[in-house]
């Protein structure tokens, strides 16, 4: 059964924050899902958007679901709506903070409660907004950011590329990273793609920061971008052909 999208009001955010605090203190209470519909803690969203909880195989599947569900909405209207993203984090709490062996491993508040003012370093950590944004912007190529080999929530590829807005917001670079580090046959990031050595995402970030002075990578196609890369990346390029 689906629900309608809503937003948490300041009292709802306060209660949600308190719940996170209590979890960190060892509480084992159920998430305060009543906040999602109680008019004292949440408001109607400006449009009727049906939404449904369900199991997601990974964060790419989660991001795809959100991108599809929210696709009819104006991106600029929802992208910075902290009340909406905080509501969604509570709504999908079992996905973003799953119960494992009777316990939830709660992270910092910023990954559930979106700050009211934009700050990429905080925003990119949000466990609902970032999968949505990654898939909305990059489609299939977001797999390189959102899927992990080890099954955890976040890979080193994600941390290296998503933490920097100039890279996360650049479709060419993300498409290039997909071709470098993602194995479409295995539907997983390639082995060795998360290291620190030659050709690694860390090195890719360094290269992009250097070439930014002389090339506008957003104007390039992924192929043109890959052609600019130094030899150290060849070991990843040769595994799959660049489109």
């Amino acid at each position: 059964m689906s629900d309608l999208l809503r937003t948490l009001n300041p009292d709802g955010v306060k209660e949600f924050r308190q719940y996170l605090h209590d979890l960190r203190g060892g509480a084992v209470t159920a998430p305060p899902f009543h906040l999602l519909t109680d008019p004292a803690y949440s408001n109607d969203f400006s449009a009727d958007v049906p939404i449904q909880t369900q199991p997601f195989a990974d964060n790419y599947a989660f991001g795809s679901y959100l991108a599809t569900t929210l696709s009819g909405l104006n991106r600029n209207q929802i992208a910075y709506d902290s009340a909406l993203w905080s509501w969604l984090a509570l709504y999908f709490f079992d996905h973003v903070c799953p119960l494992e062996n009777g316990k939830r491993s709660v992270l910092e508040d910023a990954v559930y409660i979106l700050a009211e003012t934009f700050n990429h370093r905080r925003y990119y950590r949000h466990l609902v907004r970032t999968p949505w944004e990654a898939v909305s912007r990059n489609g299939d190529c977001a797999k390189v950011l959102l899927q992990t080999r080890a099954g955890g929530k976040r890979s080193d590829i994600f941390e290296q590329l998503a933490a920097r807005q100039t890279i996360f917001g650049n479709r060419t670079i993300i498409a290039g990273a997909y071709q470098l580090y993602y194995d479409p046959t295995a539907q997983l990031p390639k082995r060795g793609a998360g290291g620190k050595g030659a050709g690694s995402p860390r090195r890719l970030v360094s290269f992009v920061q250097q070439i930014d002075l002389t090339y506008d990578l957003q104007a390039c196609t992924p192929k043109q971008f890959l052609d600019l890369l130094p030899k150290e990346f060849a070991k990843f390029i040769t595994v799959t052909s660049a489109a």
Binding site: T214, D216, A219, T221
Partner: peptide, 13 residues
């Protein structure tokens, strides 16, 4: 402010 070549050497500033 960037002026970017998008027809010859694509992407060059």
């Amino acid at each position: 402010v960037k002026v970017v070549d998008e027809s010859g050497h694509v992407g060059r500033i």
